[in-house]
Write a protein that binds this DNA or RNA. Structure first.
Lengths: 341, 341
DNA sequence: TATCAACACGAAAACGTTGTAGTGAATCCA
DNA sequence: TGGATTCACTACAACGTTTTCGTGTTGATA
């Protein structure tokens, strides 16, 4: 690459000092009209732009925020990043994305790389492996130094920092309630293993809804799916129950889509025989047949909120106490639970 | 935030010079065992990490690569980023993602921000608006300075730089050919407007396949969809043709899924009456019913290649001449074109 | 006792920028 | 003519590193 033009080079060109060039380019009236103009012309011609590293080093501020997510090939996380970007840009920040790939080690190393001065703060959604290990030392180190940190979606309560979460309990409740309202009696729950908070919380909501309808939660109707094994085979077990459920509540859209597919193959009519409802994070729900009723998650909003909290923390605007924002879910009713029309 | 510990601070603490501290931490044997150990212990305790801005400024190298994509909420682009990240990390680089949101202005400003020293090179997929305007000045400026730039997917041939593209012509050919092989005679094409290169190229492939089968391309069977208007209404026009096609080739999975949905509503059987095939970039194809046969795109591989080209360019490994890598497509045959078990 | 090497450390430049605090010359006022 | 003021510019520190080139002290050697 060609030498980038710097103040020094321009200064040498016109045989003036570096300060003169700097001031001329900033239109300071300490510098004569004449000198100013020729320097600006030269800088313009050679497309001078101040080196941001130098600026950042001097200002002790990068105007970059780091984001660490478990994976990017996931519609929900993409929407969150989109929201972060939008808000960050509006406030003059850029975004640096790192992926943990659900790995503890990679998360730790990402944190380490990002917090060595390259960013003013970080937003993170914790990796699975970290949640399983329950080792949050890398975060605690940051917080001890007062480094701006915002956790979203996959959070841990014990860490003293700003957080943004989806109202998963509310979502689970809303989901189960909808099924109860359309008359379902035996609602099967397709959820994740317990250590995955999101699944666990949605289950809590489901349980709450069942109880407030005066129904017992039969643990035989709760299926904890292991993502690393064959999904079809695990989900199919729903249909081995003595009394096949009249509704299925899945904590994500993949499980829901698969359950629906199996149900149809087995000759059940949806929603007449079995109603199906999922939590959506992508486009699948819209294109299954029948289209899937789903709890919607507003990742974009979540990203915006996270960015806002972080930048407020960085700039010391906003409250001193740590915030915990809760993003409420929506429900998009489609044909998989809706008879009539 | 608390003051970060620096060499200077440690130096003051032990009343030695900054150089001594720097050398001690690097285990230089210029420094006595004793001094070395106490400095290392202190640094360790206070979690000293060299400031990367300072390192980067000094080394005139950031080990960061910038990526500008039109949007992130798009499975294809996510997979590309994933691939970029993977390769970049392997070679010691970090990734900074910016979104152009298909806007020319934002693309220009992203380029400007990234190339002021914050990254060693950029990978970009050009925004729609830029392609429509045909204004590539911001890229030409970079190339004039020899700044490392890799274009992927949405490229422009006139720019002298490394490129990675999907073999869209081949994909279109492969798609049409598959339909011809299963006996389709009247293949409708659902494509984008002409200025979108990807759609245009896939059409070329479609045309080639038709011609090599000795068939004329009837322009009435080519539908150019405008993404900003109502998709259903535009796609429905397929079924207003005098002779309804016996196959539909869509240049993306959304169009394909919608076409299939409309066909089913109108009582056609898929694939018996009409076979449907799309280009996939997400998970939709897998979960429609019937599942959609699709040309697959290998975004991950594309990302890896792009990163490899870029880093080779940055580090002057690899050939001097600009490369144009072509990623070939695959085809995943599912029930939407496949009769029989 | 003069010479030299080894040892253990410090000074300073460089990366590119900004802003404060000079500085020398011209101009002004009385 | 002497002092103050304005003008147009320069020097320098600072941000945090690394690295090259000193430099003073010690101990050994001839």
């Amino acid at each position: 690459m060609k030498q980038k033009v710097t103040l020094k080079i321009i200064a040498k060109e016109f045989d003036v000092s570096i300060s003169t060039v700097s001031k001329a380019l900033k239109n300071s009236n300490e510098i004569s009209e004449e000198v100013r103009e020729k320097i600006k012309a030269y800088a313009d011609y050679y497309n001078y732009k101040p080196n941001s590293l130098a600026l950042q080093l001097r200002a002790q501020k990068t105007s970059v925020i780091g984001v660490i997510i478990p994976e990017i090939v996931h519609h929900f996380f993409s929407t969150v990043i989109d929201g972060i970007e939008e808000h960050a840009n509006k406030r003059g920040y850029n975004v640096m994305v790192c992926l943990s790939n659900e790995s503890f080690e990679k998360e730790v190393s990402n944190i380490s790389v990002l917090t060595n001065g390259s960013v003013d703060g970080v937003i993170v959604s914790i990796a699975r492996e970290t949640q399983k290990k329950e080792d949050y030392n890398h975060f605690e180190m940051l917080l001890k130094d007062g480094f701006p940190l915002v956790l979203f979606d996959r959070i841990v309560d014990s860490l003293k920092c700003d957080k943004v979460i989806i109202d998963d309990i509310g979502g689970g409740f809303k989901a189960a309630n909808h099924l109860l309202e359309i008359g379902s009696k035996r609602i099967a729950l397709l959820t994740t293993e317990d250590y995955i908070t999101v699944g666990a919380l949605r289950k809590v909501g489901y349980r709450k809804a069942m109880q407030s309808a005066g129904l017992e939660v039969d643990e035989d109707y709760v299926f904890k799916i292991n993502d690393t094994k064959n999904l079809y085979r695990q989900i199919e077990k729903i249909f081995h129950l003595e009394k096949v459920p009249d509704a299925i509540l899945a904590v994500n859209e993949i499980y829901a889509a698969i359950a629906m597919k199996i149900a149809i193959e087995k000759g059940y009519k949806i929603p007449e025989d079995i109603a199906v409802l999922g939590f959506t994070s992508g486009l699948i729900s819209k294109f299954t047949s029948p289209p899937l009723t789903a709890i919607t998650q507003h990742g974009y909003l979540m990203g915006q909120q996270a960015a806002e909290l972080l930048i407020n923390r960085i700039e010391h605007t906003g409250p001193k106490e740590f915030q915990k924002e809760v993003i409420s879910t929506g429900i998009k009713i489609r044909k998989s639970t809706y008879i009539g029309e």
